[in-house]
């Protein structure tokens, strides 16, 4: 893992405010998305972050988890 499991979890949690605010921010540019679309964007970002954190594997994350 590139980061510890704890850091990955916190990273995903930190997506929540950005995803929630995304609707408001996009509306300034005339783009209106629904709640479901917001949730799908959030899910895609969470998957992307998880994939980044898990691949390619190295020892850093495991070491951080143990410390």
């Amino acid at each position: 893992m590139r980061v510890s499991k704890g850091a990955l979890l916190v990273g995903i949690v930190l997506l929540v405010p950005f995803v929630i605010e995304l609707r408001t921010a996009l509306s300034w540019f005339g783009i209106e998305i629904t709640v479901v679309e917001s949730a799908l964007v959030g899910l895609a970002l969470a998957v992307a972050i998880t994939a980044w954190a898990l691949w390619p594997p190295n020892e850093d994350g495991e070491a951080a988890d143990r410390s």
Binding site: R2, V3, S4, K5, G6, A7, L9, V10, D60, A64, D65, S67
Partner: peptide
């Protein structure tokens, strides 16, 4: 450096 913080620790997090 942010990733090196002890995010597994509930007190810190």
């Amino acid at each position: 450096w942010l990733t090196a913080l002890p995010w597994r620790d509930p007190v810190f997090t």
